[in-house]
Design a protein around this nucleic acid. Structure first.
Length: 302
RNA sequence: GAGCCAGCA
């Protein structure tokens, strides 16, 4: 939750009682700092634990690697990873996955592939997460054919595609304007008895909206309720975005209302969409009124 | 008791 103040209080308390932080506790702390983007602090904690003879393990290194990757510091992450390996430490597949994902996120498929090959050379077994990440990497740069090739590779390697595998590909197809292939993937997933989740359905809805099949998208939402899959804020935002695209203020707000009825707090994205469509329709005064009502309620707008 | 992958303006 990013409540670092509370954490410091606890640390003081731990010390006051005379307890000692152990490996898990330190790793969690390091993970927390990395999530906040405070790599410096994380590394300091890592140094401190070492000085207390508590040696980092793979979880600890994983936290640091994700932190570096999230900051886009791939050079550093790569250096860190290579160092672990050359120091004879056991580098497990998860650490590779983390850095491969780092490359994927910045669109560096070569970096990702290089590590993938290193994994194979070391005799480590790629996991489904490795493949999902590689698929994401290729989707990200628009090489959907290669991405789909990896889907087949997964099965050849005796692994099972997961909901993440399919959803990643589906989203890429939607992004490429190929809703038919998205639906083809969806069917394949169902055939393989893989359960779609809220993210999968949101992607399906995004594709349908993009094709202007808004009623179909609403049908999906209804189906989700029936199937007991809770739509979340992103699901609703996706639908609202669909209606904004066709300038249907009425429906956009109706979905917003439905969101509230389901006890989901609209997000800043929701409000941006609604205010934007009001403006686009020339109802700037209305938009301002809406905005002011939000400000009065003290709603978080970013 | 802790670590990796997918969706919204």
């Amino acid at each position: 939750k990013g409540q670092i103040g509370e954490v410091h209080q606890l640390l003081d308390e731990i010390e006051a009682i005379g307890l000692h932080m152990d490996l898990v506790a330190y790793s969690i702390l390091i993970h927390g700092y990395c999530k906040l983007g405070e790599i410096e602090r994380a590394l300091q904690v890592c140094q401190m634990m070492c000085s207390k003879q508590v040696m980092p393990n793979s979880f600890t290194h994983g936290a640091i690697l994700s932190g570096l990757c999230k900051k886009g510091m791939l050079e550093e992450a790569r250096w860190y990873l290579d160092n672990l390996a050359s120091n004879g430490q056991m580098v497990d597949i998860i650490l590779y996955n983390i850095v491969i994902d780092g490359y994927a996120k910045i669109g560096d498929v070569d970096g990702a592939l290089e590590l993938y090959e290193q994994i194979l050379k070391l005799g480590l077994s790629p996991t489904i997460v490795t493949y999902n990440t590689l698929i994401f990497a290729f989707c990200k740069i628009g090489k959907l054919t290669v991405a789909e090739h990896f889907l087949r590779q997964i099965e050849l390697n005796g692994l099972n595609p997961t909901v993440v595998t399919y959803t990643t590909l589906m989203d890429a197809f939607v992004g490429a304007g190929n809703t038919d292939s998205m639906l083809r993937m969806f069917d394949e997933m169902i055939e393989k008895a893989t359960m779609p989740n809220v993210i999968t359905y949101s992607v399906v809805m995004k594709g349908l909206c993009k094709q202007g099949r808004l009623q179909k998208a609403i049908d999906i939402l209804k189906y989700m309720h029936m199937a007991g899959i809770c739509a979340d804020q992103i699901t609703y935002n996706t639908l609202i975005q669909g209606f904004c695209e066709v300038r249907n203020i009425e429906m956009a707000f109706r979905i917003h209302d439905e969101m509230l009825q389901h006890n989901l707090m609209p997000t800043p994205v929701t409000y941006n969409l609604l205010i934007n469509i009001l403006c686009l329709k020339g109802k700037v005064d209305y938009a301002e009124q809406f905005l002011n009502s939000l400000l009065d309620k003290g709603v978080r707008l970013r």
